[in-house]
């Protein structure tokens, strides 16, 4: 279990959480852009930056993310062509190369909203019991994801931390000093007794990028195991992590072994 970061098996499966469309919507919302008039160059650059980050984190980048990257590039290149060279045009809509993507985003957004409605209903139903007290229970291990803070918010926080970290000297080889397992222990100690810790502060004073990345992966792991919760009071405000009450403090990394995601 040691040196998790070094082994290829240790990958956080991002695809279970969110996909490329989520990322695009996130970027669009973050910059308050109009979905119908996306600045494709800017979005593409930001999108590629996030992919880069995911690579640093050794996150498993689903093929879908790569496909979207090439779609963005294609659109970007077509936008550069003068109108008449873009190929056959059937309808009015079709002469904007962004249209397919916009339509996909808009449709996806609608379902995201519908999902929000279901979430609201679910919350309501939580307080309703029928005669047997048997409202539908989902069991102990439902598909718990990151409920409060999205994965991209977390990655954003990591990005800031990495920016602050001093560039490492080239030419010098560091021995691997940090492991995810070790950071898991540190995190659990820090958040013990109901203390909450701001994610930004967590990274302060860390000198090496490896330490930051290990810490971040430990946070992801603990959230995935439902030991920690990440909260954010408003968009782009500080993210705070705290322990989830009533979870057994044993065998933190065990669950990963039974390969919950293989199919």
């Amino acid at each position: 279990m040691a040196d998790l970061l070094q082994t290829e098996e240790y990958k956080v499966n991002l695809e279970v959480f969110e996909g490329p469309l989520d990322l695009l919507l996130y970027l669009i919302k973050k910059d308050e852009l109009d979905v119908y008039d996306i600045q494709i160059g800017r979005i593409t650059t930001q999108y590629m930056e996030y992919l880069e980050l995911m690579k640093i984190l050794n996150l498993e980048i689903a093929g879908d993310f790569i496909v979207m990257a090439s779609t963005l590039m294609l659109i970007k290149s077509r936008m550069l062509l003068p109108d008449e060279e873009r190929g056959p045009v059937d309808e009015d809509d079709e002469d904007d190369p962004r249209w397919d993507l916009v339509r996909q985003l808009v449709e996806y957004k609608k379902f995201k909203d519908a999902a929000g409605f279901l979430e609201y209903l679910e919350e309501e139903q939580e307080n309703i019991f029928s005669r047997e007290g048997e409202h539908v229970e989902l069991g102990l291990h439902p598909d718990v994801g990151m409920s409060d803070v999205g994965i991209f918010d977390l990655i954003s926080a990591l990005n800031q931390a990495l920016d602050r970290a001093p560039e490492e000297e080239l030419g010098e080889i560091f021995s691997e000093q940090f492991t995810v397992t070790e950071k898991v222990d540190v995190l659990l100690k820090m958040t013990g007794k109901g203390r909450s810790v701001s994610l930004g502060r967590l990274f302060l004073g860390m000198r090496s990028r490896q330490e930051i990345v290990c810490t971040f992966l430990a946070v992801l792991e603990l959230i995935k195991l439902n030991r920690l919760a990440a909260r954010q009071d408003g968009h782009f405000e500080e993210i705070v992590i705290e322990q989830v009450e009533g979870n057994e403090p044993e065998s933190v990394l065990k669950e990963d072994e039974d390969g919950t995601d293989e199919y």
């Binding site: 995201k112 999902a115 679910e122 598909d143 994801g145």
Partner: peptide, 13 residues
């Protein structure tokens, strides 16, 4: 009770 995750809710929708 445990809640459904966002991806689960989206898929369900």
């Amino acid at each position: 009770s445990a809640k459904l995750s966002k991806p689960a809710l989206e898929t369900l929708a």
